[in-house]
Design a binder for these strands. Structure first.
Lengths: 164, 164
DNA sequence: TATTGTTATACTCTATAACTATA
DNA sequence: TATAGTTATAGAGTATAACAATA
């Protein structure tokens, strides 16, 4: 049923699908709603450690031990520069990250401290069971396919000519 | 490559994948980044009409002409009740929505005005070309599959037992 | 002169609790 | 007594422009 609606949308691009059908086939709305449903199950783990979700994303982005600069963190974590400045200050004051020298002194590079790595490990461990529940309910193979498609969609979309 | 990493994650659930691998396989991050990349291309259409993205979602949710109550709009549009109150007031002041009487007087039901429907049609028309570009670059069949998977993920996740 | 990041500022959304009206 | 929504309030993120430091 849904697929047929989508087909109609695709094969007749001049037709504007309306109402619930249109809403269900909206890409950005579907991404938002899927994120809301899944995020709700993980948020408590960040709450328990007094981390905002953007702060938690920054820790995760740094979790392989590689130092990253502010610009890269903004992109990977989907955070605007002014927000990231505040977030890095807060994480630094908690001793979770520390500055790393960089040849280009304009770049503000940071890496996890041992304490930050420990907090990351603790949070990942705590949230694993929830992730397994979702994987199991949705299907592990399908989840893997979904992640591949989401990453590919992002790369493909970012590669389109600018529409400014 | 990505798929192999995912397989390793799935077949050995006790192993905590670390660093970039972990970050790329995070479901909520992948959803956020995919949304950011695609949304960026649509945002200008809402901006042109001085609509915030949540306001635009409300118009879209109402676009089949069916009146909806505030609670339903909160769920479908992923907006908290206090935000929705302000949004409905703003849309009402612009003459885009109007109240609809309801047997249960506690329920605040609204529907699009003709002006609201006209604005919806205008915005959908304006954004269609961008949507087609993304569909074409990503693949129409794959896009349809992705939308089905996103909606299914949401339904499956909402159906899991509460983890409060 | 261009780039990186911070600061300043205003606005919106998030989130929780308390309150009102209705059932 | 329970439910739907609004109001109140504090906090965090969004967004833009202006600024500082470095390349």
């Amino acid at each position: 049923m849904k697929t047929e609606s989508a087909q109609a949308f695709q094969t007749d691009p001049e037709a504007i699908p309306s109402g619930k059908e249109y809403y269900e086939r909206s890409l950005t709305v579907a991404l938002l709603r899927a994120r809301e449903s899944t995020m709700r199950r993980f948020k408590k783990y960040a709450d328990q450690e007094d981390l905002s979700l953007p702060q938690w994303r920054v820790l995760r982005a740094l979790a392989d031990g590689e130092a990253l600069d502010a610009g890269t963190l903004c992109q990977r974590c989907v955070i605007l520069p002014p927000s990231l400045t505040r977030i890095l200050r807060a994480l630094s004051e908690r001793g979770l990250i520390m500055p790393v020298e960089c040849a280009d002194a304009r770049r503000h590079m940071v890496t996890l401290t041992d304490s930050g790595q420990a907090l990351f490990d603790k949070l990942v461990g705590a949230s694993q069971e929830t992730r397994r529940e979702i994987d199991h309910a949705f299907g592990e193979e399908k989840m893997s396919l979904l992640l591949d498609m989401l990453n590919e969609l992002r790369i493909v979309t970012d590669g389109l000519p600018s529409n400014d």
